[in-house]
Amino acid sequence: MRILLWHVHGSWATAFVQGGHDYLVPVVPGRGPDGRGRALTYPWPPNVREVSWDRLREEDVDAVVLQRPHEADLVERWLGRRPGHDLPAVYVEHNTPTGAIPHTRHHLADRTDITLVHVTYFNDLFWDSGRAPTRVIEHGVPDPGYRYTGDLPRAGVVVNEPVRRRRVAGTDLLPTFAKAVPLDVFGMKVTGLPQRLGLPLGTFEDLPQEVMHSELARRRVYLHPYRWTSLGLALIEAMLLGLPVVALAGTEAVEAVPPGAGIVSTRVATLTAALEGFVADPARAAVIGKAARAAALTRYGLDRFLSDWDFLLREVCTQRKLSRWT
């Protein structure tokens, strides 16, 4: 099957393109948001092919995976086909709703021709999806392998744009946690964060995923301070690496981290004590980290994720009878 999708969320796309299909990713001059092409810091297989936006009409596309509201218009302009009408389409909603929660209505709520795919059951519960056909396909994460050493008595945090996303990402909580244990922050636009917060943080910006995983696995514990995010895939990656996790009990984290795999709470004091406990007890941290890895492998395995997507894409293409892949 030949699937068109945009490079929007690197971690999710890295899992999605591991399937047995041909994946087309648009490229625009300057590789802006509507055409980044292939990922530079994630390992993508060779069956992901870049196509210039003005050559897409020449491609025999079987289905499109939409991820942002304006992409339906891009498909119509660039391919001359309408998603949901003469091109099978699904829309992946990566984000939690914003605004007047829980009354936030999805922009596809009045459409029945495009399947709305939520990546967590929390999102499915909180979005008002209206009449749109919905499905939940939970995340799948390529297994980086057990790498945990925990030789550095520090907590690792992964967050992109921590300044702009201050309360969403829980960046404002880092000073409290940093009083308890040393913190290292990985991600995009983290340079300058120590100065902004007045903290002696370690920062690691834009590392290739392979390098980041190896570095993260040296930290004694993983901290997930997000208040309002769908489900940060770095949390699942940390669990797969074998790190014990300490997570704010927001959105889907309460489902992702079962008892015995880490500490989840809305109480900052409880989370702070948990960080201190793991840093002070390497043996216990290693045991809890192995349980975290087992839990992540069971729930967020790549084979299940790809199988779920294959089933849905076949279903959508068959219903529309618009694809050769039926």
Score class of each variant (00 low, 15 high):
residue 217 A to T: 08
residue 101 I to D: 02
residue 110 D to F: 07
residue 213 H to S: 05
residue 112 T to H: 03
residue 122 F to P: 00
residue 129 S to G: 06
residue 104 T to D: 06
residue 230 S to H: 03
residue 142 P to F: 09
residue 124 D to R: 15
residue 127 W to L: 08
residue 228 W to D: 15
residue 141 V to R: 06
residue 139 H to N: 11
residue 170 G to Y: 09
residue 164 R to W: 11
residue 169 A to T: 07
residue 167 R to L: 03
residue 164 R to T: 13
residue 154 R to A: 09
residue 117 V to I: 12
residue 174 L to R: 12
residue 137 I to N: 07
residue 169 A to Y: 05
residue 225 P to Y: 10
residue 197 L to G: 10
residue 147 R to I: 00
residue 140 G to W: 07
residue 120 T to H: 14
residue 119 V to M: 15
residue 101 I to P: 00
residue 135 R to M: 05
residue 182 P to S: 01
residue 150 G to T: 08
residue 119 V to N: 02
residue 187 G to N: 06
residue 214 S to P: 00
residue 118 H to F: 15
residue 154 R to N: 00
residue 134 T to E: 10
residue 214 S to E: 15
residue 194 P to N: 12
residue 223 L to I: 12
residue 210 E to Q: 14
residue 104 T to N: 01
residue 157 V to F: 10
residue 112 T to G: 15
residue 195 Q to V: 12
residue 152 L to C: 01
residue 167 R to K: 13
residue 182 P to K: 06
residue 192 G to T: 02
residue 172 D to R: 01
residue 214 S to T: 08
residue 157 V to K: 04
residue 120 T to R: 13
residue 109 A to C: 07
residue 167 R to S: 04
residue 167 R to C: 02
residue 162 P to D: 11
residue 130 G to E: 07
residue 185 V to I: 11
residue 222 Y to G: 03
residue 176 T to V: 14
residue 199 L to T: 06
residue 197 L to K: 06
residue 113 D to P: 05
residue 128 D to F: 00
residue 206 D to V: 00
residue 217 A to K: 05
residue 153 P to M: 08
residue 196 R to T: 12
residue 190 V to T: 12
residue 110 D to S: 13
residue 215 E to T: 01
residue 112 T to M: 02
residue 110 D to K: 10
residue 206 D to H: 02
residue 223 L to G: 11
residue 188 M to F: 05
residue 200 P to V: 11
residue 154 R to D: 08
residue 162 P to S: 10
residue 165 R to C: 05
residue 134 T to D: 05
residue 199 L to S: 04
residue 106 H to S: 05
residue 196 R to E: 13
residue 199 L to I: 04
residue 117 V to Y: 10
residue 221 V to P: 04
residue 104 T to P: 00
residue 203 T to K: 01
residue 131 R to N: 06
residue 136 V to F: 09
residue 220 R to Q: 11
residue 131 R to T: 12
residue 141 V to D: 07
residue 159 V to Y: 03
residue 186 F to I: 01
residue 195 Q to C: 00
residue 115 T to Q: 01
residue 171 T to G: 07
residue 184 D to W: 09
residue 197 L to E: 07
residue 193 L to K: 02
residue 130 G to V: 09
residue 227 R to H: 14
residue 188 M to Q: 13
residue 216 L to D: 01
residue 206 D to S: 07
residue 193 L to V: 03
residue 221 V to C: 09
residue 202 G to L: 02
residue 179 K to P: 00
residue 106 H to W: 07
residue 185 V to Y: 08
residue 173 L to C: 04
residue 170 G to D: 12
residue 159 V to P: 01
residue 160 N to H: 14
residue 153 P to W: 13
residue 124 D to M: 04
residue 180 A to S: 15
residue 177 F to Q: 10
residue 201 L to E: 03
residue 152 L to K: 14
residue 211 V to I: 14
residue 180 A to V: 15
residue 229 T to S: 13
residue 200 P to I: 11
residue 103 H to W: 14
residue 206 D to W: 09
residue 200 P to F: 09
residue 156 G to F: 00
residue 228 W to P: 03
residue 182 P to H: 04
residue 192 G to F: 01
residue 130 G to Y: 04
residue 113 D to W: 06
residue 157 V to T: 11
residue 134 T to I: 12
residue 122 F to D: 15
residue 100 A to R: 14
residue 125 L to Y: 11
residue 217 A to Y: 02
residue 224 H to E: 11
residue 179 K to Q: 15
residue 215 E to N: 09
residue 175 P to F: 00
residue 119 V to F: 05
residue 125 L to N: 11
residue 215 E to Y: 10
residue 122 F to Q: 12
residue 215 E to A: 14
residue 211 V to K: 08
residue 178 A to E: 09
